[in-house]
């Protein structure tokens, strides 16, 4: 199923491995992304999940939405659990106790599980070079516990632990750039994606799965509940994140950068911020600061794509 982006939906597998009937909120673009990732990988996969929204909505004992082997142990250790499963298969295949069928090892966690509490375990797994795909479903706060800020919450956003107050206008730190942290580990494949661009997302997931060694995909996952938007607007907001340059879609193969969804004319960030309740309180000055930062980061990214090896 290569170049799915070109041939589009017709050639997509009909089979679902992340089954319907889960308990996600209406308009959850994270659950949509999980579904697309599962679809892209097929059934020869072992999934390790962090504690979080996606774990809670899909595994209430004795039910499950997973039609592939799936394990959840704790919040911050997904990459380590995955390292263990991958190593087990490696050892068992070498000893002839199982057949090596090229099973893909998929790790998944939210932004809290990835950029905050699970960063050490993920860094260790990257460095050791296990062959796996780790996907961060980034909804930019601890949504499962009630919209508390994480290091992935964007500047200016109001959350329940970075509320827009009379003195402090919400989150006052810049979003941690997790994709660049992965690149700094010399991980052979790193990409950003968004469920609003499903074919781009699936193609990246498959590329990641084909890559020997670790691969990292950072998926912006629109959360209507936490971002204070109507559930019907999730896909639209995801597109605006890309079209304003706030969340550019790119991939990095062995250090070589490529923007995968070109944005010929960048929209002002205001168009992305304004519809969202979490940014309602922002003054024109703060919006201007965000615009400045987005422009700077985007120019940096473009410069990286132009680097001559």
């Amino acid at each position: 199923m290569e170049a799915v982006n070109v041939y589009a939906a017709r050639i997509l597998e009909k089979q679902e491995y992340f089954k319907p009937g889960h308990r996600a909120c209406q308009g959850c673009a994270e659950a949509l992304a999980v579904r697309l990732v599962a679809k892209a990988l097929g059934n020869n996969v072992i999934v390790a999940s962090a504690t979080g929204c996606m774990e809670i909505i899909s595994s209430p004992l004795p039910f499950t939405n997973w039609d592939v082997p799936w394990i959840h142990v704790a919040f911050e250790n997904t990459a380590a659990v995955l390292s263990g499963a991958e190593s087990a298969y490696k050892a068992l295949a070498r000893k002839g106790r199982i057949k090596d069928r090229g099973t893909v090892f998929l790790g998944m966690g939210g932004d809290g599980a990835t950029t905050d509490i699970g960063l050490q375990a993920l860094s260790g797994a990257f460095e050791r070079g296990h062959s796996f795909v780790y996907v961060c479903y980034d909804n930019e706060a601890y949504m499962n516990t009630g919209i508390q800020r994480s290091s992935s919450t964007p500047f200016g956003a109001s959350t329940t632990t970075s509320p827009a107050g009379k003195k402090v206008p919400g989150q006052i730190t810049w979003k941690k750039n997790m994709a660049e942290i992965a690149v700094a580990h010399n991980v052979p494949y790193v990409a950003t994606a968004c469920a609003s661009y499903p074919f781009d997302l699936m193609e990246k997931v498959q590329k990641a799965a084909r890559t020997p060694g670790p691969a990292y995909i950072h998926i912006l996952s629109v959360c209507p509940t936490g971002w204070r938007i109507p559930p019907s607007k999730s896909i639209w907001i995801g597109r605006l994140a890309v079209e304003t340059g706030i969340f550019p879609l790119f991939e990095v193969e062995d250090g070589r950068y490529r923007i995968t969804v070109d944005v010929p004319e960048m929209r002002p960030v205001e168009e992305y911020l304004k519809p969202q309740g979490r940014f309602r309180h922002l003054t024109p000055e703060i919006t201007a600061r965000i615009q400045e930062r987005v422009d700077f980061e985007y120019r940096k990214l473009v410069a990286k794509t132009q680097f001559k090896f």
Partner: peptide, 28 residues
């Protein structure tokens, strides 16, 4: 010894690797 020796970055990860490995069917 034909085994995977995983020099993890913490004991928290040591036990987590063991969980993943044991769940995948390996003597751990």
């Amino acid at each position: 010894l034909d085994a995977e020796f995983i020099p993890v970055e913490s004991e928290h990860s040591a036990m987590s690797v063991c969980c993943g490995s044991s769940a995948a069917g390996a003597r751990t």
